[in-house]
Amino acid sequence: MAVQPQTNQTSATGTEYIVRCKDVVKEYMMGTQVVRALNGVTLDIVRGEYLSIMGPSGSGKSTLFNMIGGLDKPTSGSVFINDVDMAQLDAQELAFLRCRTIGYIFQTFNLIPVMTALENVMLPMIFGGLSTDEAIDRGIELLKLVGLGERLHHKPNELSGGQQQRVAIARALANNPQIILADEPTGNLDLRTGKEIIELLRQLNKEQGVTIISATHDLKMVDVSDRIVWIRDGRIDRVEERAAVEVRVGDVEGTPG
């Protein structure tokens, strides 16, 4: 059930790209005016990397993030996930992709309030066709993995923010996704809890080999990211590898957003 196809095409250099954005342009209508949120973004994301998308609000960061996550379609240009053009997928295929290939983590945790921690983790597995017993076993295993083995039957409102985000991470991992998309995962958490969540994500990235793509302006993310993509005015401002970034954090601290 949980086996993922590993038949990704490799590029000439031997690097496996899990997501490829090609000249992505996104325009919105604001009244009668056309607003260009993304202005030709080309970005290749390597399988297994931890990538952070940074930029001030209004930079197009969220728009790019939504494109990668199959939540929005570009006006022109294309986004490929596992070499499949997202524009070619119909609603059911997109739902399948969201269920099996991508795990989502949100700023506001977004647990289903009427379901317990375990039921929340089980839901994507039930959608994916797992039997209840299998889903319970795997759900417990995942909640233990994120350190919540003792809180299986708590409702979201009985959990702290950090605990809710851990449940959300367990839920994102439910169907062994290849990509985890995290939208400001630490945005609603205090400094220490945020750090713990980042460490957990990094650990999962290393141990399970899942690609993590995160939109954030939390500079704590900089330390763990393999690459940081800076977005400004709908374009990629610069892409930095981790080694280069560490020395530069000092300058960055003062930038807006």
Binding site: F106, L123, F127, G128
Partner: peptide
């Protein structure tokens, strides 16, 4: 809206 959107992110079809 958030709950519905989340369900869709987890793979729910419209009909669900």
């Amino acid at each position: 809206y958030k709950e519905i959107g989340t369900m869709k992110c987890l793979g729910a079809y419209d009909i669900f």
